[in-house]
Each structure stands twice: as structure tokens, then as C-alpha cells.
Amino acid sequence: MTDIIKDKAIVSDEWTVLRLSEEQTPDAVEVPAGKTIVPLQVWLLQREALIQRDDISVWFNSDEQAKDLKDDIARFSLLAVNFPKFSDGRGYSIAFNLRSRFGFTGELRAIGDVLRDQLFYMQRVGFNAFAVRADKNIHDAIKGLTDFSEKYQTSWDEKNPLFRRAKRAGAEV
């Protein structure tokens, strides 16, 4: 059991993330029993076996696409997106696409190099859960969710841009 941030609170979590070692291959790796988040490639290659289980979810690496999971997306109550480096921004578009284009409504979790100073943006594009990097203080990291109270543009969290939501002043003539 580890702590994660979920829906703006720190909660303990039972899921294990399966990461392959160099010797393991996605078609042959044995998926352990219990709640496991498997790499997308493992899901795609072992789908027939894994589909029988109700304790499996899937994580995307940053070079993968939401559309690669397509019709299966609705099966899951949890999906995760991996950030190999916090500076790799592809995961933001994966999350946005999962939510906006494929209508995923379950828990969307950021895993990997997940740090306080990126949480606000992650939350905006559709993440609602964050497995903060283990060596960081999760009680510090959660503060990153409230850096800003206002935003200009649309994303998953704000369907309307500021100019449609607020009465904004023009020039005084």
C-alpha cells in the first residue's frame, strides 16, 4: 500500500504498476495476481487472458496514444499515463485525448516522474490522481494543485474560456 493523491486528497492505494525489466517481453511477461496496472503493450498482446480479470488496468507510456486502446477504454475504471521524465509533455495530450476524445470518466492517474510543480497543469488536462515520485514528500506535492485560482483557456477542467465565464472590462472611453 502506498499513498497517492486522488481527488485532491491523500489516500492509500492498492494498485501495483507492472514495469517490464529488460529481459521481459510484453507478450510473455507473467502478470501477477492482484490489482495490477499493466503496460499498454501487455494488455494488447495478452488481451484474451487479461480480459477475464477484473483487477487489471492499463498504463500508457509517453510515446503511445490514447487511440491505441480505443474500444477497450470504457472497460476500465482506472487508466494511468507514465511520465518517464517530468519534462516530457506528451502525457498531457494523452490525458486530454482520453478524456475529451474518448470520453474516459474513470480515475486517470499520472505515474512516473510526477512532481509538485507539474500537478496543476496535469489536473487541468484531466488527471485526477497522482502517484508522486516516491522520494518526494506527498504532503508538500499536493500544494501544487492549488497554485492558481483562475485560468484563461479551455482544457478538460474548464469547458469555457475565461472570456465566456467572466464579465471582463473593456477600455474606458
Binding site: D88, M122, V125, K151, Q153, S155
Partner: peptide, 14 residues
């Protein structure tokens, strides 16, 4: 300018 400012999805571009 306003649209680009703190755009959440495009802050860590290539």
C-alpha cells in the same frame, strides 16, 4: 497572449 499563458497541455513541448 492570454490563450498561450499557462496553457496546461503545451508547457512541456519538444
Amino acid at each position: 497572449r492570454q490563450w498561450t499563458t499557462f496553457h496546461p497541455e503545451f508547457a512541456y513541448l519538444p
